[in-house]
Amino acid sequence: MPLFSSPPKALCLIRLSAIGDCVHAVAMVQAIQRQWPQTRIVWIMGKMEAQLLGDLPGIDVIAFDKKAGLKGYLQIWRQLRSIRFDALLHMQSALRASVLSLGIKAKIRLGFDKQRAGDGQSLFTNIKVTSPTSLHVLDGFMAFAQTLGIQDLTPRWYIPTSTTDDAWAQEQIQNKPTLLICPAASKAFKNWTTTGYAALADYAAEHGLQVILCGGPSELERTMAEEICNLSQSNPLSLIGKTNLKQLMALIKQSSMVLAPDTGPTHMATAAGIPVLGLYAHHNPQRTGPYLCRPYVVSVYESLITAQTGKPVGELAWRTRLKDDSAMQQITIEQVKAGFDKLLQDFPAIKGS
């Protein structure tokens, strides 16, 4: 039975990080909004995530600064001390999120069940949301909405960008078919090779797409961009370190395809309805891959994890990660070209046709 037969007055959501997971949570939150437009929703998220999602329509976003220590917790608790929520959606298995939940007034406290809970989260919740049969993180989030009583769980997203950011993105893309390559993940072992990215940049150019590189300002990302540009014959445009999250979102919205490893921009592209060619080795793409483009993922996870554990994927724990820092190098250029070709075949609009 659903928890609510009529719309609750106020819900609080804790999902602090990371960018991709918060983008998944947007689909869940907006499913709630469609059915219960008058329900107040307060979402506590990380400072960086709030840069992208802080202006979601109808959501009271509160940015949590984990670097502020105790002051960060006290600030949130003071801000919400006068509100008693109908339910708390504790959607992050991290101790800092559980500690944060202690200062939220709510009798009903939803959390993950045994399959997906971690870091002692079950000690801080009183309703365990049953994990769906689907492995994907997004479906696990949607189970929270279903438990509340939401009926339409179809993932849909609206992440606004300003006219200024849209105009800036337009200046970069100029209405041309564009492959946007986000070469770097937050963890270096998730990255593919610069040789591979350069080859795909040239391959995309041969198919009539311009290529733009995007990413953050870290030394690793700048070095990767420089190497890709030096190795490529097609002269890709590098915007590495030159975008904030809103500009990146605007850029993704106007691109034709995104190529990236297991990182946030793959999910931002999914939210924008842009085809994604994801590259995976360390995590099961059926759990963390681009939700709407999982059939196009290039993955060596399945074969490598079976070789490492001696078990098929279906017998492994939900979060099982491949422990091999060189695993992404097992992905071949030919495999990625084949994935690119499949996307072009199934999404002819990529080339503007």
Rank of each mutant, 00 (worst) to 15 (best):
I44P: 10
L74N: 11
K66N: 11
V42Q: 04
I19Q: 05
S6C: 06
D86H: 06
G20S: 01
Y73C: 08
A18Q: 09
R78D: 12
Q79K: 15
R84D: 08
A87F: 10
A68C: 09
K71F: 14
Q33N: 09
L53F: 10
P8T: 08
A63C: 07
S17Y: 05
A31K: 05
R78W: 14
L88P: 07
Q92E: 14
S82I: 02
F64T: 07
M91Q: 08
A68M: 11
R40Q: 15
R15P: 11
F85C: 01
R78N: 14
I32T: 01
L89E: 08
L70W: 15
V29R: 01
M45Q: 12
I76A: 03
V23A: 01
L88T: 06
H24F: 12
R78H: 13
G54F: 08
I44H: 10
V23Q: 02
F85N: 02
Q33A: 10
V42E: 06
Q92V: 11
S82P: 00
L16W: 06
W43S: 06
A25P: 02
S5A: 13
R15C: 06
S82H: 14
R84C: 05
F64Y: 14
K71I: 12
C12G: 04
I19L: 12
S5C: 07
V61A: 15
I44E: 07
I44K: 10
G69E: 12
T39M: 04
R34L: 02
P57F: 09
A50F: 11
V42L: 09
A25T: 13
E49T: 14
W77N: 03
S5G: 08
I32R: 01
M45C: 13
G46V: 10
A31Q: 06
K71E: 14
V42M: 07
R34H: 08
V23I: 09
M45D: 01
A68H: 09
R84M: 00
I14A: 05
W36G: 06
D60P: 01
R15D: 03
M48I: 15
I41P: 06
H24C: 12
D21C: 00
D60Q: 15
H90E: 13
Q30Y: 04
D21V: 02
G72S: 12
S82T: 14
A10P: 06
I76H: 07
S82G: 00
L56S: 01
Q38G: 01
S6N: 13
V23C: 05
D21K: 00
I14Q: 08
I19N: 01
Q75H: 15
F64W: 14
K47E: 15
L80S: 02
D65Q: 10
I76M: 09
L89G: 09
I44A: 08
L11R: 03
V61N: 00
G58P: 10
H90Y: 09
F85A: 00
R15N: 07
K71P: 00
G72D: 12
M48V: 14
Q51W: 08
L80V: 11
S5F: 13
T39R: 02
Q79V: 00
P8R: 04
Q35A: 03
K47L: 14
R81Y: 05
L16T: 09
